[in-house]
């Protein structure tokens, strides 16, 4: 357990989570608390169930036991956002980019004026310079994932889940999207859980990094990341960052990969 977070400050609380695939336990009594407004990154070896964890939390996958509560409520009563790794398959290609972003707001029953207001604010926050009236397939990969991110934030989610959002993008695009995303998430104080297979990204985008072990999954290390925001490409060279990365690499080789 990652003690010390007062109940009112906890946006997401997981207790005694159990999940097995084909009789093989992935989670067997897993606990986690996520502080409101924090960005939590989850890092671990392949197949340790990082995506499984956020899919269960987001209500996309049933769990076998334990509870997942958002300030005392189950996911059905909570607005959550989700950014998929595969933006190409997550966006609706038959709707224009702007209509993709409007879609969850319409499901929420927001009035049209409010929908347009939020759409404009999102375009401004993310400094969108391309035409949102185009279809997703007419946009570049980075633009499509940006549309996905805007769509997930449009409902002003209480918790945002991001499943390896940049792993299909080139490095240059990743750097610029990371910068935009941290500005918006920190500016709006969105509680976020980021699954990543990139250690550098997990550190640079998070307030706290959870390192997971192989199955059955437990926490190998729970690393606070007190680096100042905003974090820039220069952050990657600073002593504080390097120290954290060294610690994480050691944990990864010892507890995670070696087990």
């Amino acid at each position: 357990m990652s003690g010390g977070i007062a109940p009112r400050e906890t946006a997401l609380s997981i207790r005694g989570l159990r999940k097995a695939f084909g009789g093989q336990p992935v989670y067997d009594g897993f606990d986690l608390d996520v502080r409101r407004g924090d960005i939590l990154a989850i890092f671990g070896p392949n197949g340790c169930g990082k995506s499984t964890l956020i899919n269960m939390a987001a209500g996309l996958l049933p769990h076998d036991g334990g509870e997942i509560l958002f300030d005392g409520r189950t996911v059905a009563d909570v607005r959550v956002g989700y950014v998929f790794q595969n933006y190409r398959e997550a966006l609706f290609p038959w709707r224009r980019a702007a209509d993709n972003i409007r879609y969850p707001m319409r499901r929420l029953g927001l009035p049209a004026a409010e929908i347009e207001r939020r759409l404009e604010r999102l375009s401004a926050d993310f400094r969108v310079r391309f035409d949102l009236n185009r279809y997703p397939y007419e946009l570049s990969g980075g633009q499509q994932q940006l549309v996905s991110i805007m769509r997930s934030l449009a409902i002003e989610p209480e918790v945002l889940f991001l499943d390896e959002p940049f792993s299909a993008l080139d490095y240059e695009t990743t750097l610029s999207l990371r910068a935009l995303l941290q500005d918006v998430l920190k500016g709006r104080e969105v509680t976020s859980i980021l699954v990543s297979h990139d250690l550098e990204e997990s550190i640079v985008l998070a307030d706290r990094l959870l390192m997971l072990t192989r199955r059955p999954t437990s926490v190998a290390d729970d690393v606070p990341i007190p680096l100042p925001w905003p974090r820039t490409p220069e952050t990657l060279g600073e002593a504080g960052f390097v120290a954290i990365k060294t610690r994480c690499l050691r944990v990864f080789t010892e507890a995670v990969a070696g087990a």
Binding site: L60, F84, N86, E89, A90, F92, Y103, R107, R151
Partner: peptide, 25 residues
């Protein structure tokens, strides 16, 4: 595409909604 169905689900679409907003398309 399963991802699209999940995306609609997480955005609050019910079964009927998913049918008309995703499956038919």
């Amino acid at each position: 595409r399963r991802t699209r169905i999940l995306a609609a689900q997480v955005m609050g679409a019910g079964r009927v909604r998913i049918m008309f907003d995703v499956l038919v398309w």
